[in-house]
């Protein structure tokens, strides 16, 4: 007669939720870690947490791992090199482009106010090669513009510079 091994005990739903919440917090703290390597680490952590939970319970297994950020810092430190901060770079790029859009909006508002102060009318300008028409009359308040390659280049370059500086991209060089 042959005997098959007893089926592995699966953690309860609350324990699985606790485990996944913890792993999500670790993932958030390690979002700049090389993704392929992190996939392996996350898989191993999940297996280790499940194995430890079978012996001491999921709460204790999570307590033993410590704070997710500290654990993430441990993995990053053991990598032996400094990593670019891609998420920070992306945030910096969005903020920089947002600042440009805000400035353009402020410029448009100021121009419309000036047209109103002069008695109303229409003004056409060519900022960065884009034909832009400001209209402020008794019946119409509008700004019409188009995208030029110079404007696209300026926004792209601003985003790129902000991303490089924010992410410390030079860390890729060693």
């Amino acid at each position: 007669m042959t005997t098959s091994p007893a089926p592995a005990r699966r953690p309860s739903l609350p324990d699985r939720v606790r485990r996944e919440v913890y792993l999500t917090r670790v993932s958030w703290a390690m979002q700049d870690y090389p993704s392929k390597a992190f996939t392996g680490i996350k898989r191993e952590l999940r297996a280790e947490m499940t194995a430890a939970a079978a012996e001491v319970g999921m709460r204790q297994a999570i307590t033993d791992l410590g704070h997710p950020r500290v654990l993430a810092e441990g993995y990053t430190a053991e990598l032996g090199r400094r990593l670019p901060r891609y998420a920070t770079g992306a945030a910096a790029a969005v903020l920089a482009v947002g600042a440009l859009v805000y400035l353009a909006g402020a410029y448009a508002t100021g121009t419309l106010d000036a047209i109103e102060a002069m008695g109303g009318g229409t003004v056409t300008t060519h900022p960065l090669g884009a034909v832009t028409t400001f209209t402020h009359t008794a019946t119409e308040l509008s700004v019409q513009t188009s995208m030029s390659w110079q404007g696209a280049l300026m926004h792209g370059a601003t985003a790129a510079v902000a991303f490089v500086l924010g992410s410390r991209l030079w860390r890729l060089l060693g």
């Binding site: 680490i41 952590l45 280790e48 499940t50 194995a51 079978a54 441990g74 993995y75 053991e78």
Partner: peptide, 30 residues
């Protein structure tokens, strides 16, 4: 703490100083 040891295991394995094998367990996952 376990959180101190796991990153070290990860590095030692990456550097080829240790290796690993999966062993089925009756009280949990492999």
């Amino acid at each position: 703490a376990a959180g101190t040891v796991y990153p070290i295991l990860s590095r030692l394995e990456r550097e080829g100083l240790i290796t690993s094998r999966l062993v089925p367990s009756t009280s949990g996952p492999a």
